[in-house]
Design a protein around this nucleic acid. Structure first.
Lengths: 165, 165
DNA sequence: CGCAATTCCTCCGTATACTGTCAATTCATC
DNA sequence: GATGAATTGACAGTATACGGAGGAATTGCG
C-alpha cells in the first residue's frame, strides 16, 4: 500500500512553520511556486475526474479543437491550444496511435497533414464531457462565484501581458 | 530570424472571435487551460529574467531549499518544493553534474544520500537572487497591490483544497 | 533476535514542454 | 520562371512531471 502521507508529514517542523508564517526567502509563497502548484493541482483533478478514459488534459484540448475545427493542421491546432509544434506533434502521434484522430495528406499543400476526429475520438469526447466539466468546476470550488470571475480575469490579464507561444 | 508571429496571427478569425467573446465550449476560457497558460507564462518570464544563469525554476527552488536546510535528503527536498522523488532525483543529478550540489552517503543511514550546496551553487544562488525577484514581480505586474494579495490567497486556497504531492 | 513493514534511492515507462535544426515544399518577388 | 524567404512536419536534445517496481537498508514489534 502506497504511503498516504501528505507533504507536511515529511517536513521538519521548522520548514512547515516557515511555510505557514512566511519567512524571509520562502519560495513557498512566491507566485512562481504557487502557479506551478496550481498546475499540479489542475492536472491531478483532471486525472481523478477523468480516470478510466485514458486521456490527458492536452489530448482533451486537442480533441475539442479538432471537433470545432475539422480539417485543421497540426501547427494551427498547436496555436489554438497554446502548444508548440514539437509537443503538439508528439501528442497527435499518441492520439493517432490510440485511434482517436486521422491524419491525411493535403493534395493542395504537400507540407501539411490534415487532421480529423475519428468516430472513436468523437465518442470519447462526448463521453468524457461531463467529467471534464466536473473537473473544471472542482478546480475553482474553493472560490465563491464572484471570486471565480475575478480569478479568471486576473489569470487572463497576466497571460495576456507576457504573451507566450 | 525566427517569426515573431503571436498566437492570434495563426488562427482563423472564427477561433479568435470565439476565444475573445466566449463560445459554448471554449476550452480557452476554462480554468484548466488558463492555469496551464499561466504556468507557461511563469516559466517563460523566469527564463527571460534569469537568462545566462543556466538554471531552471526547479533547480532554483532546490537551491533555496538546500541553502535553508543543509544536509537534507532527496525525498525531503522533494516534499519541500512539491516534487515527486523520481523527478527530484533527475533534477539533483543534473545539478550535481553542473557542480551546484554535493551528494554524500550518510554513515548513520546507508539508504540516504545527504545533500549540500557546493560553493559554486551558493554563489549562483546569491548572484541570481535579484533576477529571480524581478521575475516574480513581473508575473504579478498586471495586478494592482490589492489584487496581488487576493490572487495569491486564492491560489493558496485552491491548492490547499486538493492537496497534491 | 527474527521478521514484517517502512523508507530511501534508482530505474522504467509515459506524457508534457520548448529550442533548435533539417528537408521538403510553397510563396513572394523580381 | 528563377530564387530567396517563409512554412510545415519530423527529429534531437534538455528538463519537468508522475506512477510503479525493485533492491538495499532500517525500524518496529513480538
Amino acid at each position: 500500500m502506497p504511503s498516504e502521507s501528505s507533504l507536511a508529514d515529511l517536513l521538519p517542523e521548522e520548514a512547515v512553520r516557515d511555510a505557514a508564517h512566511g519567512g524571509m526567502d520562502d519560495v513557498y509563497l512566491k507566485p512562481g511556486h504557487l502557479i506551478r502548484r496550481l498546475q499540479q493541482m489542475a492536472v491531478s483533478v483532471f486525472a481523478q475526474e477523468c480516470e478510466g478514459f485514458d486521456m490527458t488534459p492536452m489530448q482533451y484540448a486537442a480533441l475539442v479543437a479538432l471537433r470545432d475545427n475539422p480539417g485543421i493542421d497540426a501547427t494551427r491546432i498547436g496555436a489554438l491550444v497554446a502548444m508548440d509544434r514539437s509537443t503538439m506533434g508528439n501528442v497527435l502521434e499518441r492520439m493517432e496511435g490510440k485511434g482517436l484522430i486521422e491524419r491525411r495528406a493535403n493534395p493542395q499543400d504537400k507540407r501539411v497533414k490534415l487532421l480529423k476526429l475519428s468516430r472513436r475520438g468523437a465518442k470519447l469526447l462526448a463521453d468524457c464531457e461531463p467529467f471534464v466539466r466536473a473537473a473544471q468546476a472542482r478546480m475553482l470550488e474553493p472560490l465563491d462565484a464572484a471570486e471565480r470571475v475575478q480569478f479568471t480575469h486576473m489569470m487572463r490579464r497576466m497571460i495576456a501581458r507576457q504573451d507566450v507561444i
